[in-house]
Write a protein that binds this DNA or RNA. Sequence first.
DNA 1: CCAAGGCCTGAATG
DNA 2: ACATTCAGGCCTT
Length: 287
Amino acid sequence: MKSQPFEMVDYCKINLENTINSGQVFLWKKDQENWYGINGQNVLKINEIGEIKSNTRKKIDFFREKDNLEEILKSISKDKMVKNAIKNYSGLRILRQDPFQCFISFIVSSNSNIQKIKRCLENICENFGEKVIFDNKEFFLFPTPKILATASIQEIKKCGTGYRSNFIITASEMVYSNKINFELLKKCEYYKAKEIISQVPGVGNKVADCILLFSLDKLEAFPLDRWMIRILEQYYPSIFELSTKTLTHKQYAMLHEKIANYFGPYAGYAQQFLFKMERENYEKKWL
DNA sequence: CCAAGGCCTGAATG
DNA sequence: ACATTCAGGCCTT
């Protein structure tokens, strides 16, 4: 067996801080030594050495432990930008989130920022989610599709979600009625899954790609928000020449095509590293 | 097909 | 102190 470079082993080891502070999850906080997070009907606790505990016995592969990180990192290392980001933010992982929570989270995220998204989601949990005690601490789980589907618009609005409140209710109805079936979407290929999930009001290109990447195992999804556009303009002007300010559906699709060709089947991982890098450069706050 | 404006909130700026 | 501007993604016109 060939010995692999020392660094590669290092980069493959998960780094919780980098992972949680990368804009993919919102309901996480840290006390003295442990991270606690809400993932659907579970409270997750992760200690300093990376052991994961839950309030239930349900076991989920939250960290995508079966991903072949070495292969993925090699695959996306197409240029200096990505290589540096991998080096500087080593241990950053894509998580496998609870699909319904992820779905609602990114509908809430539209036209918003991380702090506000977090506040809104905390309100949603406190107002609609089940209260549980875990580790002598109080948590509110993420509400079920049924609860949000049958909530009143006024109640939702109190959470600070504004015009997105209607989207939340309709989206939850579609999940509750099984019109949107996450298990099915996991089995679909990327384009098909995206087509289906885009039928939900409040889910456009970017939100769809976030849901697909962060909860439905579509690692080729590459969410293009203002930050990513800025990054591509700045660092990849010759590869992905961007003409206009606003991305139409067609332009989004064409750009994704180029990106997929360039970064390959794990493009979503490249996106996460580049996003993390740029936000850190601008010293943007996380949670 | 594309461009422009409105939706809602909170932070930043004047 | 208050008013204005801006960031942010989706939908309708």
